[in-house]
Computed example of a mutant assay.
Amino acid sequence: MDYSQLATQIKAWAAELGFQKVGICDIDLSEHEAELQKWLDAGYHGEMDWMARHGMMRARPAELLPGTLRVISVRMDYLPQDALFAADLSNRRHAYISRYALGRDYHKLLRNQLKKLGQKIEQQVGQLGYRPFVDSAPILERPLAEKAGLGWTGKHSLILDKEAGSWFFLGELLVDIPLPIDEPQSNQCGKCQACITSCPTNAIVEDGVVDARRCISYLTIEYDGVIAEEFRRAIGNRIYGCDDCQLVCPWNRFAPLSEQDDFQRREILKNPDLVSLFLWSEEQFLNNMQGSAIRRIGHIQWLRNIAIALGNADYSSDIVDVLQRRKGINDMLDIHIQWALEQQFNQIPIQGTIDTKQQRLIRIVQKGLPRDA
Rank of each mutant, 00 (worst) to 15 (best):
C199V: 12
A34M: 12
R60Q: 15
V248Q: 05
A87N: 12
A14G: 11
P66Q: 08
L303H: 09
C215I: 10
N287F: 10
N305E: 09
T353A: 12
S30D: 12
A42W: 06
D28Q: 09
L17Q: 05
R60A: 14
Q124M: 10
S30K: 12
L333F: 10
Q284N: 11
L29E: 04
R265A: 08
P370K: 01
E267D: 14
C249R: 03
L179H: 00
S217A: 15
K120L: 14
R214G: 05
Y130F: 15
A148L: 05
Y78H: 13
L144M: 08
K270T: 13
L369F: 03
G352M: 06
N330K: 05
L174W: 01
D261N: 07
F345H: 01
I27G: 03
T220S: 14
I348E: 01
Y223S: 03
Q5L: 11
A87I: 10
C195N: 02
D49A: 14
I235K: 02
Q119G: 05
F231K: 03
I294H: 01
L323G: 02
Q347I: 09
H94M: 13
V134G: 00
G46W: 10
D372V: 00
L84G: 00
Y96V: 08
E283V: 13
A313Q: 05
A42H: 09
R233S: 14
Q264C: 08
K116A: 13
F169V: 01
T153S: 13
K115M: 06
I235L: 13
V71S: 02
C25W: 03
L361P: 00
H32A: 09
G368H: 04
M289D: 02
H156R: 03
H336Q: 11
I216L: 15
T353C: 04
D77C: 11
R70L: 07
Q124I: 08
F85K: 07
L114T: 03
C189T: 08
D244G: 00
L40T: 09
W339R: 04
R253D: 11
V226F: 05
I181Q: 11
L323M: 04
S281N: 09
A59L: 04
H336V: 01
Q343C: 14
N202R: 11
A194E: 09
K116W: 01
E222I: 10
W39H: 10
T356C: 04
I181P: 01
I268Y: 13
E141K: 07
D2K: 07
L36F: 15
N112P: 00
G18W: 06
Q246L: 14
Y130P: 01
R213H: 10
E16D: 15
L40Q: 14
L277G: 01
R70H: 05
T153M: 15
D211G: 11
S186A: 15
K21H: 11
D243E: 05
F278T: 01
L128T: 06
N112V: 03
D243N: 08
L29N: 08
G18E: 05
L277S: 03
R296S: 08
V210D: 02
A83T: 05
Y130G: 02
Q290H: 12
K115I: 05
S292C: 10
